[in-house]
Amino acid sequence: MSGDPLAALRAATRARVALGRAGDALPTADLLELRAAHAAARDAVHLPLDVDAVTAQARELGVEVLHATSLARDRAEYLTRPDLGRRLADDDLPAGAYDVVLVLADGLSPLALQTHGVPMLREVLARLDGWRVAPVVVATQARVALGDEITAAVGARSVVVLVGERPGMSSTDSLGIYFTFDARRGRRDSERNCLSNIRPPHGTGYAAAATTLVMLMAEARRLGLSGVALKADPALPANVEV
């Protein structure tokens, strides 16, 4: 048996628990690790997305890729003006008639999209038989609601936004997925379904997330809605947001 009774607890979580004390402060090693994690989280927010690399990787999946950006002119404006991150700078995207558009958005962690975006995209595309899928859109300085305007611009009914989530002290590369049925400008967050913490091996895996997402999409199309009224698991009570 370990001499440290909290060793099992520490091994079961990436959270910082039972760090100990050195006088009235943290032990030096833990304090330095905490500061390094804080710096990594800040770096993840400001790291620019390598649009060319993500585009090239997505095209290897055999899809057409378009580019879009929000009205936020740079990262500083994006962080201080969330409203601009929800508006398209130019809505002159090729339009068609599609069931869904998939958006790869940098969000608050471009690192997350750079790391997990295309692998997640691959799993989603593999499960979309019977869906008319628009060209993939890589969006920069993007908030989730930017997907609503992209949906209207390309002529789609629904949108799936793969977006970098706000970095935390133990997670700098967490990817989120937001699905909105009948997407259009002015949709509320309660009208979206969210799958979060996609970051194998420490979070949800790509295949599991894609399976849940496509099930939600199919139910949304059948019922004509998304958001808090749409359940991800029949065992859940009604109006549980995913």
Rank of each mutant, 00 (worst) to 15 (best):
A89M: 10
R35P: 12
A139N: 09
T13M: 01
R10D: 00
V160Q: 05
V100H: 00
G96L: 03
A18P: 05
A235N: 10
A183K: 06
A105V: 12
L31A: 14
L61Y: 12
M217R: 07
L61C: 08
S109Q: 11
A12C: 00
V144F: 00
A209E: 03
S2P: 13
Y178A: 13
R127V: 01
A12E: 01
A53H: 07
A40I: 13
W131A: 05
A97L: 05
V228Q: 14
Y206I: 00
V160W: 04
D43T: 15
P167C: 07
G130A: 00
A145Y: 00
L84P: 11
V51G: 07
T211C: 03
A105C: 12
A53S: 14
R16H: 11
Y178P: 13
V228I: 15
T212G: 12
R87K: 04
H38W: 12
D4T: 06
P200Y: 03
R86G: 10
L162M: 15
A142S: 04
D52C: 03
D189A: 01
E241D: 07
L104C: 07
R35T: 14
M1I: 00
A218C: 03
N197E: 09
G20P: 10
Y78F: 11
A208F: 00
L128E: 04
P167V: 09
A145R: 10
G205N: 09
L26S: 09
L88Y: 08
H116K: 04
R199H: 10
R184T: 06
L230P: 11
L175G: 06
T115V: 08
A142T: 04
V133R: 02
V100I: 09
L216Q: 05
V144H: 00
T151H: 05
G227S: 05
S158N: 02
A39F: 06
V100N: 01
P234F: 00
T13V: 03
T80V: 12
G23A: 02
G23I: 03
E123Y: 09
A89C: 07
L230F: 07
T69G: 13
P5N: 05
R185E: 12
M120V: 06
D30E: 15
M217W: 01
P237M: 01
A139Y: 07
R185M: 04
R188T: 11
L230E: 08
D99R: 12
L71E: 15
P119V: 01
A53Y: 00
R185N: 09
D83P: 04
D106G: 09
T172H: 08
Y178M: 10
H202W: 11
G205Q: 03
P5K: 08
V65H: 04
R127N: 04
R35A: 13
H202V: 15
I150G: 14
A145C: 03
